[in-house]
Design a protein around this nucleic acid. Structure first.
Lengths: 337, 337
DNA sequence: CTGAAAGCGCTTACAG
DNA sequence: CTGAAAGCGCTTACAG
């Protein structure tokens, strides 16, 4: 492959001039520029990005760590990140943690070895200590999106999980339900905690006591929703409505309800969370909480860029809470008595 | 950040010895090794990957170009690729083309600029000419998976689309259907052509004439399946069965059938292709063709590795056709007359 | 087994 | 506006 040297020789200039022509064209006389550009073209020259990164001390790539690439929830977030990243000349390296904390942690090595300039973290299933240390001590540029550590200095772009959950459950209450169960996300996740608070507050606002049998934990997969749904629906006094912490689990509930010959929404109301594309096409179409996923991705990338370029000084507050939308479709209705 | 120099100084050795200790420990005396390792540890040393890549002339990174990150079909393929890649010390850079050929092409720049050592191409929506030139002239390591260019020298890991489609349609015929329509993928895709041949051969084998109104094109999205399904089902003589080129479109058909008060499978049989996770949870569960996605990804990565290490010489035949599995669930049955 | 030195391909402060 | 030269942080052939 051709290098600056080859181009310089062919154009009859120094390597410095070649480099300038390519990155600061207006610092170079037009005649020179033309010579250089045509020489570069003739040789099919493409600058070696490794050499450039080494010299400039920046890689122009961003690492996105996601908990599980198979989870449909993340694709639009990644699209949002990519939109902004490409526009600003950054590349995206996607790190799939495969739901393993240790695998997620293995990616931060990419920052230590200078292969990425910053990190967008889409999972809290990592060592909080390591991330906060690197953020605080080594000024590692990192932004969390959706997931977060409560009370952490690491900025986060997300939604108000508590309010959104509360709104969803209040909707079920307004329909006349009083026996409302919930299928939660992983119990150690702050998001799960928030959504649970929303659930409990909605019930408390109507003086409905918490039924401890009405809360079952899942892991956001179809199957876990189905399993949890079976447990709830086979209770002696089963719920008439189930609020699920994500759409996949809600679809799992739709599935088990069908197996048990329960009609949704007549016999059972189901509400999801996220509004993944599929939620519109399942049967019945899912009533759910819409998260502005693309916007979350875009804003996370923008915030990271701000940090990389050190706007706001080093300590600017970058966290944002974005609005959700409650989407009424067909999976929830008044209870039949 | 600490560099080899810092470690060398602290350990009282040369940078060469530091480097050797880290990459070829057994070429170094034990006492020296211990000194170096503890110095490296004390300094929190992490080698600069850019410098290493520049020197070694390899990035240890593979680019995966996918047509659309939102398409659930690809996640398990990517998982398969990652399995093998990580095991062999390679990183994966994911390039999302967002269904745009030009965006897909923009990623090959990463190869020219030496940021990736090779490419796995999961879309044929690119310039065939550019890829074949680079493959042939510049020996660019590239493997296609699932998608391919007919008659191309670029190796491909995929399934037999024609046979798999033929089998699915033959199943519908064996159930007693004669009015079988199809919703195809993008018309310019070789895969679409193959699956269509399978469809037509199955019909021909039973002497059933091709009905030109019975073939409608889609783009693999839910919505396109729904739209195409509406067209087919509102024909004066509608089909009793529809073979779809992927599961998402089949689910779109399930959706429109419901809107039109048609019961699947009693009034209409539907078959998909791919066996995405969701196909098991939709209503009714989808009869479909299972593709060994993880294996496709693993083998694609293995083949690329072989090429990078130049096993098989430079011209070894690396293409593979992997077996599919026909999965009978609930969306197809005998027609009612 | 170890070190001095060259070099991977760029970019940029400095001098002119 | 342009060039000579240094240097980013590694690795490795060579010599000892």
């Amino acid at each position: 492959m051709a290098t600056v040297k080859d181009v310089a020789r062919l154009a009859g200039v120094s390597t410095a001039t070649v480099s300038r022509t390519l990155s600061n064209p207006d610092k170079v006389q037009e005649a020179t520029r033309i010579k250089v550009i045509s020489a570069a073209k003739k040789l099919g020259y493409s600058p070696n990005a490794m050499a450039r990164s080494l010299r400039r001390q920046e890689s122009k790539t961003i690492l996105v760590i996601l908990p599980d690439i198979a989870n449909a929830f993340f694709s639009e977030i990644v699209q949002g990140i990519e939109d902004i990243a490409h526009r600003e000349g950054y590349k995206i390296l996607l790190g799939d943690a495969g739901n393993s904390a240790s695998r997620a942690m293995s990616y931060v090595d990419l920052y230590d070895s200078k292969q990425v300039d910053g990190i967008i973290l889409l999972t809290a299933e990592v060592s909080r200590e390591v991330f906060e240390n690197k953020f605080l001590q080594s000024q590692m540029p990192v932004i969390m999106a959706c997931e977060y550590f409560p009370g952490s200095p690491i900025p986060v772009i997300n939604i108000n999980n508590q309010e959104s959950a509360q709104h969803a459950v209040a909707y079920l209450l307004s329909l006349g339900h009083t026996q409302i169960a919930t299928i939660t996300g992983p119990s150690n996740s702050p998001i799960t905690v928030d959504r649970n608070i929303g659930y409990e507050r909605a019930l408390a606002a109507q003086n409905i006591p918490i039924n401890e049998h009405f809360s079952v934990g899942g892991d956001y997969s179809f199957q876990s929703g189905k399993d949890a749904g079976r447990v709830l629906l086979q209770l002696t006094n089963p719920p008439t409505a189930i609020f699920c912490h994500n759409d996949e689990m809600a679809i799992g509930v739709l599935n088990i309800a069908r197996e048990l010959n329960l009609n949704v929404p007549n016999d059972l109301s189901v509400i999801g969370f996220d509004d993944i594309p599929f939620s519109e096409y399942c049967e019945p179409a899912l009533t759910t909480v819409h998260q502005p996923r693309e916007l979350i991705g875009q804003n996370a990338m923008k915030a990271l860029l701000d940090r990389l370029h050190e706007k706001h000084g080093k300590k600017g507050i970058l966290s944002q809470s974005l609005p959700t939308q409650f989407i009424v479709r067909k999976s929830a209705s008044r209870p039949n008595h």
